[in-house]
């Protein structure tokens, strides 16, 4: 597991106060919302804050949010893309 993905999992667990879940329990490609991790649309707001707080990445509209916050893989890809753009 890459460091970035592991860090993301730890940060999601901490920010959303997900009790009894370990980073290892979250699959990289599993959906974070609904059937996967079970987050709801209101939790998305805290993931938006997390992305900006830890990675300086802004998500300003729902459409981007749906795509970027779909899974750990999608989140990490977006962070890396944004870092590359800002080089």
């Amino acid at each position: 597991m890459s460091d970035l993905k592991y860090e993301l999992k730890k940060q999601i667990i901490e920010e959303l106060n997900l009790e009894d879940i370990q980073p290892e329990d979250i699959e990289d490609d599993a959906p974070l919302f609904g059937d996967g991790l079970g987050l709801d649309s209101i939790d998305a707001l805290e993931l938006v804050v997390l992305m900006e707080k830890y990675y300086g990445v802004k998500i300003t509209d729902e459409e981007t949010g749906k795509k970027v916050l779909a899974s750990i893989n999608a989140m990490s890809e977006f962070i890396l893309e944004q870092k590359e753009k800002n080089k």
Partner: peptide, 10 residues
């Protein structure tokens, strides 16, 4: 106001 996403406010 900490954050906003469409109709949701933190």
């Amino acid at each position: 106001l900490v954050a906003r996403l469409e109709n949701m406010f933190l």
